[in-house]
Design a protein around this nucleic acid. Sequence first.
DNA 1: AGGCAGGTTCTTA
DNA 2: TAAGAACCTGCC
Length: 275
Amino acid sequence: MILRIEDDFDLKKIADSGQCFRFNECGDGSYSVSAFDKHMFVSELDDNRYEFGCSKEEFEEFWKNYFDLSLSYKDIRRKIDKKKDPYLYAASEFGKGIRILRQNPWEMLISFIISQRKNIPAIKASIEKLCKLAGEEIGEDERVGIIYSFPTPDKLAALSMEELSSCSLGYRDKYVHQAALDVCSGAVDLESWVNLDDDALMEKLLSLYGVGVKVANCEILFGYHRLDAFPKDVWINRVLDLKYPDGFMFDEYAPYNGIMQQYLFFYSRMDGLTE
DNA sequence: AGGCAGGTTCTTA
DNA sequence: TAAGAACCTGCC
């Protein structure tokens, strides 16, 4: 189906934003997008028109929510004052089009456990191997081959340590294995955690083996879509040190600090951050 | 060859 | 409680 989208929406920036690892450019300008048990291709036709490789029903029922299209990111960007916060303003102009996707909490948890001390291509490679090993077939294409879903907790828990190791997880293999066991046993119930308040959710996440403050915040922002979470990685810490010696204005941007974090992260990686 | 990549755990004082 | 070391792997 073809749709015009007036709000901020840039496939390339979303794909490169580091929040998703199964959202890839195919080489011909189209994007392969996998989420939950669904897969489709998307491409931009002209300025604001996009072709989604799904039915209108499926788009309304699933993808509209996945792309968070009910929220106006354009309005949120208006909170940024060019005079008061020139660096964030520049970052938001540069990152205009990024949205925070509504992804699967389980997939996000495992993905960000894997992400520690890895670069994005390496994270993607590990996740792709996991999907191929233990996921279900959800799509096929002559360009990219068979598309697999992210493994369910029980499929992942059933993998041997040797199989996990074959996915280049390194020392993170034991973290992934334990998380899968915890979710399978019911000791960890990610769905029910949506009802917890922010502090209680953070506490639960930090109790997981291999999950520290950074990964927990990524899960809160990208897995639970709590848009005020502000994950601090090496890039963001560099930005805060160099550009915000007097502190970042978290109060100004609540409850959307996580969106600001995305702009800063995306911008800082291109910027070089020399000053 | 040695250092580093979207960190966390473990050890030591 | 707070630094410092160790940790898998792949890529420059």
